[in-house]
């Protein structure tokens, strides 16, 4: 085994230990009788419920609906956030116009907009996708803006001396040069999107979605369904953070030595 593989295995083992410890603690509380079993179901019950929802396909439908909204909104946020962040960093008038807007709008929690959007767009995908878009855009935009401003001026000079025009400079130097920040922006943006979608679905979705199913189950005291959905939300979030963005980072900025490798 290479040292890298050993390290990877160790970090997985540590992760498993941490999760097992949390589960044991939870199970201890659940069995202690401090809370009614129906409100704090045991892991066994949750697992059975989760298995049932996977087997009848309903969990896939819920997760699919949520993923669709999140990916749609996140893609919109990327299409707006990255180019606008670059324009702001490259052109002073663009920055002068948008920076105050960004500073004013960024601190507003996307969840605060849900009732408003419901009045305008009704219940369903339009509202939830827009809430996700709102939540994800600012971290992407802000990080891209910082990233472009922190591109080493020596790279621009060197590229200019080698005959790069503005267009080539943009694609061949500025984008890769700002990539550590852009990827960080994507990560933060996705996290915000994932938080926003579950909140938005609780009040602005009907029939499908992980947020909706939690909210719906509460009315029927189905704590096992709520917990099962929470577990799925956590797992999907984890997969995106570690597997999707982790691989993007390993294939790019880590391979180029632009960010240091995380020692596990």
């Amino acid at each position: 085994m290479t040292p890298e593989q050993t390290q990877r295995r160790r970090s997985i083992i540590r992760g498993v230990i941490a999760v097992a410890a949390l589960a044991a603690f939870y199970e201890g509380v659940a069995y202690s009788g401090l809370f009614p079993r129906v409100l704090l179901p045991t892991i066994q019950t949750i697992a059975r419920t989760l298995y049932g929802m996977l087997a009848d396909g309903s969990m896939f439908e819920h997760a699919g609906a949520t993923l669709f909204r999140v990916l749609f909104g996140f893609s919109l946020a990327m299409t707006v956030g990255v180019p606008l962040g670059i324009l702001m960093a490259r052109f002073k008038p663009v920055e002068n116009f948008f920076l105050p807007l960004v500073s004013a709008l960024m601190p507003i929690p996307s969840f605060a907009l849900v009732p408003m959007f419901m009045l305008w767009f009704g219940i369903g995908n339009t509202t939830t996708v827009l809430v996700v878009f709102y939540g994800a855009t600012f971290p992407i935009l802000f990080n891209t803006w910082s990233g472009v401003r922190s591109v080493n001026p020596l790279w621009l000079r060197a590229a200019g001396a080698m005959g790069a025009d503005e267009h080539k400079l943009f694609w061949k130097v500025i984008i890769p040069g700002a990539s550590p920040f852009i990827i960080t922006g994507m990560r933060q943006g996705f996290l915000r999107a994932w938080i926003a979608v579950v909140g938005a679905e609780m009040i602005a979705a009907s029939d499908w979605g992980l947020g909706w199913v939690i909210f719906d189950a509460e009315q029927f005291l189905q704590a096992d369904i709520m917990m099962a959905s929470i577990v799925v939300i956590g797992i999907i979030g984890f997969v995106f953070e570690r597997v999707v963005f982790g691989s993007i980072e390993r294939a790019t900025v880590q391979r180029w030595g632009m960010v240091r490798m995380v020692k596990g």
């Binding site: 020596l154 060197a158 590229a159 180029w256």
Partner: peptide, 25 residues
């Protein structure tokens, strides 16, 4: 032009990619 700072190379390009840059332009 050659600068003093080692950071003048593009970290996202291999040695070959760096050297080809001018010709690519």
């Amino acid at each position: 032009v050659v600068f003093q700072d080692f950071a003048q190379l593009f970290p996202w390009r291999t040695a070959l990619g760096n050297v080809s840059f001018g010709l690519e332009m």
